[in-house]
Write a protein that binds this DNA or RNA. Structure first.
Lengths: 203, 203
DNA sequence: GTCTATATTGTGATAGAC
DNA sequence: GTCTATCACAATATAGAC
């Protein structure tokens, strides 16, 4: 029985992630992944048998690095406004480190929506927990009455969307200047936090 | 000199749009486009020579149906709050009619950012016009001081993002129920409008 | 476990008859 | 202008030597 080399497997996964995340499933070539990993093309098949298998491994990992994080960030014991501030800062920071992640996930989930259902069953992610947190705050009169789902989507939208629309935004607002875009994003953390707080706090 | 049949050309463009918009450039097959148009595969090449040409025609059309609309909607002569309300309603309605449009545009612009620069030069779209409108309102003291670019992104984010993230949202919040998602979006028009107004209006 | 060589299928594109 | 037949190559996948 031949056992697989964990080190090689990780090299492959790392390379596959690099390529898939930028070019997507159908835009990626096994050859390019092999080159990126510095190994032979047929080794990919030895370790993962098919392109789809390799892709699934990468996708699952990417999906879980982005989605459950939302829930985790609201689990601390500080005020709701602080929670929002920390979430906005951390989530934007995370995406800055993984610029292609949002587009990758959304493109692939749209191409293959069934996969999401399957993946979500795997992870112990219950959005009800966050929803309850917001409902509690509303009941206590700390924030305005609002559908928590709508509020959560608002928060996440404003953090993630600029990266999804980055090329269009850069062209429209920043003369395609990467540096200006970066400054905008850095400034955005404060702006979004304040925007949300203004929208939900009781005067 | 053989002249091309306008009717066939439109049939092809319509079919190409259907396929490309859902599957993207690299996920689409010329065969499927031909089948959808009810014609032969080689006719596609007769009319557009290459897949890339056909794609460019479709993409340009899609891009211009989504992006300049943002500017147009702020050109009326009503109050800024009414402008925002109308924009949110109309833009969400437009996307409901073209569910795959946002993902298509963002996926392809990320795959090929240079194309955006080129396209934006073609269209007489000056975001400065909208920015000035907001600056004017701030000066008049009608809304809180805020970077207009950040505000515009906030508004567009909240309208568009739910469709980009639709499969994930449906799985997380709505048990994959399409009807519940639709209700959520319908309700969202009011919610987003109010959210924005609360955030920027002066108390 | 890793490589070279090769099989196999898919897909964009062209030639040529009508 | 539209079709059938075919080319040429790209890309996934497998066989087999080491």
């Amino acid at each position: 029985m031949t056992s697989k080399d964990k080190n090689t497997e990780l090299k492959i996964l790392k390379a596959a992630k690099e390529v898939f995340i930028v070019k997507g499933l159908e835009g990626s070539r096994m050859q390019e992944i092999a080159d990126t990993a510095g190994i032979n093309k047929s080794l990919l098949h030895y370790y993962f048998r098919t392109k789809d298998n390799l892709f699934d491994a990468v996708f699952k990992d990417a999906f879980f690095s982005m989605i459950p994080r939302i829930a985790k960030m609201f689990e601390s014991d500080i005020s709701i406004f602080n929670k929002i501030e920390i979430f906005v800062n951390d989530y934007i920071d995370m995406i800055v480190q993984n610029q292609y992640l949002p587009n990758f996930i959304f493109h692939e989930t749209n191409r293959n929506p069934e996969k999401v259902v399957f993946l979500l069953k795997d992870v112990g992610l219950n959005p009800m927990l966050i929803i309850d947190i917001f409902n509690e705050e509303i009941k206590k009169g700390n924030i305005k009455p609002i559908d928590p789902k709508q509020l959560i989507i608002n928060i996440v939208s404003m953090c993630v969307f600029p990266f999804v629309a980055k090329p269009v935004m850069k062209g429209l607002f920043f003369n395609n200047n990467e540096k200006e875009f970066k400054i905008f994003i850095e400034e955005r953390k404060k702006q979004v936090t304040n925007f949300i707080i203004n929208a939900i706090s009781i005067k």
